[in-house]
Amino acid sequence: MKRHFNTLVVTLKGELDAHYAGFVREKIDNEILNSKVKNLIFDFSRLEFMDSSGIGVIIGRYKSIKAVGGKVIIVKPNRQIKRIIDISGIQKLIPVNDNLDEAIKKLL
């Protein structure tokens, strides 16, 4: 996790399923609470696999970020993850971007 001013960039690696969702959720929530960031970027460029448990993680964080008037962006999901995102319909609420630097700039 990295902070760019008031934006938290969470880079996830490996696989996000129900087993790891709780751990990821807790880590991000602690960071949001402690560093008082406003915006959140999910950097999925190094995430190889995600099932619908990941959607729960994204929506949960989206709600808390939205409550403080912030924005959430998803960056570089692979094809499999993009399909899960498309089916869920969350791309109507959360933009998907192909470039991390661009996403960070958008939130500055």
Partner: peptide
Amino acid sequence: EEERSGMGFTVMETF
């Protein structure tokens, strides 16, 4: 409350 998205069967059906 556990942030389950309710999409499990939809994903199975689609994929």
